[in-house]
Amino acid sequence: MTMAAAPLADLQTTFLAQVLDADAPLPHGWGSSHAAGMAVYRNNYRSALIDALRAIYERTERWVGADAFGRAAAHHVISHPPTSWTLDDAGIGFDATCAELFTGDPEVGELAWLEGAMMDVFTAADSTAMDAAGFSAATAAFGEEDWAGLQLAFQPGSSSCVVRHDLRAIWQHVADEDASGVAVTPLDHPATCIVWREGERSTFTMASTLEGRAFTTMQAGASYGVLCEMLSDELGVEQAIMQAGQFLGHWLAEGMIVGLRS
């Protein structure tokens, strides 16, 4: 298409396609000065997005090294051109990109997921954790049916993911500037990494996959009764009730619950 007579919408579509694809031939009639200008826009586009990924995934970059991270970031920018107005969304899907590119180092995709989740929850809506005393007061008059129907509200922006590596150890290790030279062994059993915010600080815990399923089930709006049923399929009724109580106590102690859903 020639850009000379194109309506504005067509011109912008063509222009942005030029920016996104560094190998695209320039429109008919463009000279060397246009090519030089387009080179600046192409470079600005890529460097802004790669810088945004570097800012979000600081620890992942430290883990894989700057060169490998730069290649992964460039690949992601090309394969996932952004659609959102906020640069915070530039990292959407970057954990999957890392999992795809670092097939010999499967912990990289998991670390990238964790870092993205920690960034997302950092600016989630503010809320105050419900402590054990508050929970006791709110449920003091509960009968059996009330307990069965109990639904929990978790910290806004909380998320979870099944992982196969000890992300706590990796996370602490990459807090140092030099993160090289560490052997990574997979966990004996998969675990669930749960991310939430304590006050203004993003945090996470490594839980069993059973607790992870319990968390995602309750977070999705299931009742305490449904949780007990789900657990009883694996543990039997008595053990399930006790286990559900332990999970609830853990979530309250960690400050993951903000209230009861009405």
Partner: peptide, 20 residues
């Protein structure tokens, strides 16, 4: 302009200086 209906450039892209 920074975007089309499909993608966002996150850059300040130039406009043709036309009546349209």
């Amino acid at each position: 302009w920074t975007r089309t209906s499909a993608h966002n450039s996150h850059d300040l892209l130039p406009l043709p200086l036309t009546e349209e």
